[in-house]
Amino acid sequence: MTTVKAYAAKQPKGPFEPFEYELGDIAPDEVDIAVESCGICHSDLSMLDDEWGMAQYPLVPGHEVIGKVSSVGDHVTHVAVGDRVGLGWHAGYCMICDQCMGGDHNLCPDAQATIAGRHGGFADTVRAKGASVVKIPEGLEPAEAGPLLCGGIAVFNPLMQLDLKPTASVGVIGIGGLGHLALKFANAWGCHVTALTSDSKRDEALQMGAHDTVNSRDADAIAAAAGRFDLVISTVNVQMDWNAILATLKPRGVLHMPGAVTEPLGINVLPHMMFNQLSLSSSPVGPPVVIRKMLDFAARHKVAPVNEHFPMSKVNDAFEHLRSGKARYRIVLDRD
């Protein structure tokens, strides 16, 4: 038996308090990770507030985990004790459905979320199925890499799934936790990158990989971008004039939405979608093989999130900072 020391909320929107629980014997296909750091994703806040109706309390969030393997089951061969690894949104997959067998583990209907029905990485130890655990390559700074495992893969996955060409023109809506990484990845991919953001973030967007910007609050500026983009990645969770955004796409262009907008979009098929053969898509994080490729790509091209750090014991302060909207742009908790 292993006693895990963690931080848990006992009710929706409640404060985090020290919390201990026991891990039983490790299964043959499982890995235990001694947590070094863990990013805070907006999904952790959504789970804390039970916005999706799937949280269970006491809740230990944390699904952007970096740490070293402390124990492995007998059937795990791709990582060993002492390896530095990462764990993202998924802590396990069924491994037998068509999606898993086809390499689309993130679409597995029985995928196990790291922080839904189990305890996550705001702790000294976290356990997951081996298939969900990936090595951190040389060239990535481990203390900064955590947000790549959810925020990073959320915007990298569509670049691969949509077979994006390096000659493409890409627009990114929202320059926050997801958006700033989308700028960096699309730029490193070779694309011409435009940030659709407020004028107040123009300089930051240019520093993080945008070649130019469009004021997302100016309807005339958006209208002037008609027919400009092969792909628009929307990272926001608020309503916009999506028909106006669709009009910025070239024929056969795609509006891809990793940002979780919960209200109906109000999209018209005519005229833009039908006459220009446009597509609307979305995707959940990415499968392990794409996470590995993303981490290698990030190491090769020096793509790293912009992070603010808090000691894990100050988790309540970190969440208050996130709620305030002042985070620039991701928050990482470091084990005290």
Rank of each mutant, 00 (worst) to 15 (best):
L159P: 03
L140F: 08
I222P: 01
K302C: 06
E36I: 13
K10Q: 14
A205P: 04
D218W: 12
Q11L: 10
I40D: 02
D29W: 10
A145Q: 13
E308S: 07
L206Q: 05
Q112W: 01
R328H: 14
V35Y: 05
C41T: 10
F122A: 01
K165Q: 11
A128G: 01
E36D: 15
A168Y: 15
T235P: 09
V81G: 05
V303A: 01
Q239S: 12
D110M: 06
S70F: 08
P15C: 05
A80D: 12
G24Q: 08
K250A: 07
D241V: 05
A186C: 14
S283T: 15
P311H: 02
V285Q: 05
W52N: 08
D124Q: 04
I173Q: 04
F19G: 13
R228E: 15
S313P: 01
H105N: 13
S279A: 13
G62R: 04
A195G: 06
W52E: 04
T262K: 15
K135I: 07
R330D: 14
V214R: 06
R323K: 15
I26V: 12
D203V: 09
D317I: 00
S132A: 14
L178T: 11
G39T: 08
L178W: 10
V81S: 06
G121R: 04
G120P: 05
S43C: 07
H78L: 04
G103R: 06
M312D: 05
L278Q: 13
H75G: 10
A224S: 13
I26Y: 07
D230K: 08
C108K: 08
D220I: 00
V133R: 01
G171S: 09
N243I: 08
C94L: 01
G92Q: 03
N237L: 04
T248W: 12
S200D: 11
E141L: 07
I267L: 07
A9V: 03
V214T: 13
R300I: 09
F16P: 04
A224W: 09
F297A: 07
A80I: 10
A80F: 10
A327L: 09
I233N: 01
L107N: 10
D49W: 14
H321G: 02
S46F: 12
S283H: 07
H321D: 06
E138M: 05
V289Y: 08
D44C: 03
I33E: 00
M54V: 15
L107D: 13
V238C: 05
V254H: 01
C100I: 10
H192I: 02
A128N: 02
L295C: 07
A8R: 01
A55V: 11
S43Y: 09
P305R: 11
N307G: 06
I115S: 09
